[in-house]
Amino acid sequence: MDNNRRTHSKDTNQLRKIEFGPHTLTTEDHQYELHIPDKEYFEKHQKFSNDYLNDTHTWVKVFNNTEPLKGVNYINLIGWTAKGNHQTSYGYTLLDQEPVIILASGQEKITDQVYWKTPELAKKHQDQNFDKLITKAENN
């Protein structure tokens, strides 16, 4: 993937940058290691030592969605030792004939941000309404 993705956040209206590597996701605040989990490992290990938790605090589990939502294929990221349902998802699609990455929250895939390839594209589309993307109401 292109590592120069930027977005305008709806909450702060500021440019933000993310970067996907072969096994990493880097935001302005954190870098995460992406891992595909072995389901049996987590079935066997219900509790983790503090040392293990410290060593894996930057790891996330990655799952592919089985069905696209409104034509967007998402990957779901969940904290490595997290047991709850909180997840972050990143999806790829085209908007206005431009490739974008969509950041969505929760199982409902509520769109939080849209990442454009360049800062110029992000600024150009900063006031655009993306109601056609997945919202909580549409998933119920």
Score class of each variant (00 low, 15 high):
residue 81 T to F: 02
residue 140 N to S: 15
residue 9 S to M: 06
residue 91 G to R: 00
residue 60 V to K: 14
residue 62 V to D: 11
residue 13 N to T: 01
residue 66 T to Y: 08
residue 101 I to R: 01
residue 129 N to E: 11
residue 1 M to L: 08
residue 86 H to K: 11
residue 108 E to W: 05
residue 63 F to M: 04
residue 19 E to N: 09
residue 91 G to A: 00
residue 102 I to P: 02
residue 129 N to S: 08
residue 88 T to R: 12
residue 26 T to Q: 15
residue 4 N to V: 05
residue 65 N to C: 03
residue 100 V to F: 01
residue 88 T to L: 10
residue 66 T to R: 12
residue 56 T to E: 09
residue 140 N to D: 15
residue 83 K to W: 03
residue 77 L to R: 06
residue 23 H to D: 14
residue 33 E to S: 06
residue 138 E to L: 11
residue 85 N to H: 07
residue 79 G to L: 09
residue 70 K to L: 12
residue 67 E to R: 07
residue 14 Q to K: 07
residue 30 H to N: 10
residue 70 K to C: 07
residue 68 P to W: 02
residue 66 T to S: 09
residue 21 G to V: 03
residue 116 W to L: 01
residue 41 Y to H: 14
residue 88 T to E: 08
residue 29 D to Y: 14
residue 38 D to K: 14
residue 33 E to K: 08
residue 100 V to G: 12
residue 91 G to I: 00
residue 96 D to T: 03
residue 7 T to A: 08
residue 129 N to F: 09
residue 62 V to L: 11
residue 99 P to C: 02
residue 99 P to M: 06
residue 23 H to T: 15
residue 20 F to V: 09
residue 119 P to W: 03
residue 129 N to H: 05
residue 87 Q to R: 13
residue 98 E to C: 09
residue 21 G to N: 11
residue 101 I to Q: 02
residue 121 L to D: 08
residue 140 N to H: 11
residue 39 K to I: 05
residue 3 N to H: 13
residue 113 Q to G: 01
residue 2 D to P: 08
residue 43 E to Q: 07
residue 6 R to D: 04
residue 138 E to A: 09
residue 86 H to P: 08
residue 82 A to Y: 05
residue 83 K to R: 13
residue 40 E to G: 10
residue 12 T to N: 11
residue 130 F to W: 07
residue 20 F to L: 10
residue 100 V to D: 04
residue 97 Q to D: 11
residue 20 F to R: 11
residue 20 F to Y: 12
residue 34 L to M: 03
residue 18 I to E: 03
residue 120 E to C: 01
residue 22 P to K: 15
residue 71 G to L: 01
residue 131 D to W: 10
residue 50 N to P: 06
residue 107 Q to A: 15
residue 117 K to C: 13
residue 101 I to A: 01
residue 75 I to Q: 11
residue 73 N to T: 07
residue 96 D to K: 05
residue 137 A to M: 14
residue 89 S to V: 05
residue 58 T to C: 11
residue 104 A to Q: 00
residue 118 T to W: 04
residue 135 T to V: 05
residue 108 E to T: 10
residue 49 S to C: 03
residue 104 A to H: 04
residue 96 D to Q: 10
